[in-house]
């Protein structure tokens, strides 16, 4: 498992405010890395403290594969997509998938399906396709973004 990066410098965060607003950036594949698993564990731990607010999770690169509605994990293994969707729903945390990274990997919502004149769509419920501008907005509005890769 690769360690995650704390992406805010301690120099810029010397005083930890009472209420922390976080966002997560996940870039590691749900199949080739433990990035999505580690981020989920982190999120569960962070939510134990009511002073932590998770403003959003942005999936980029291979991590967008988490939003594939057609993937079927073996029944005796963790259903990572469902775990993410359930946790996000419980805590009203938006799960964003980078639209460009998703479309090139076949994660398509209904709008994109029409745009590309396809007959199917594959985006799982609980996830939404957004541009990188949404990540940049999260970067500007939260105290800390943590990357899992």
């Amino acid at each position: 498992m690769r360690p995650f990066l704390l992406v805010n410098s301690p120099l810029t965060c010397s005083k930890v405010p009472d209420s922390m607003h976080y966002a997560l950036l996940i870039t590691g594949s749900p199949y080739q890395t433990k990035a999505c698993h580690s981020a989920l564990k982190f999120l569960k731990a962070a939510l134990l403290n009511p002073e932590n607010t998770l403003d959003g999770v942005f999936f980029y690169e291979e991590a967008v594969l988490i939003g594939n509605a057609l993937s079927q994990p073996p029944r005796d293994e963790i259903d990572l997509r469902k775990e993410w969707a359930d946790l996000a729903k419980t805590h009203s945390i938006p799960l964003y998938l980078c639209i460009a990274a998703s479309v090139r990997r076949g994660i398509i919502n209904e709008t994109e399906s029409q745009r590309y004149e396809l007959s199917q769509h594959s985006l799982s419920e609980g996830f939404q396709l957004e541009g990188l501008g949404t990540l940049i907005e999260l970067m500007s509005t939260t105290s800390k973004i943590i990357q899992f890769r």
Partner: peptide, 11 residues
């Protein structure tokens, strides 16, 4: 270098 930025992302 890596402690001079508010955000560092690795690819």
């Amino acid at each position: 270098l890596f402690s001079q930025y508010q955000h560092v992302f690795r690819f």
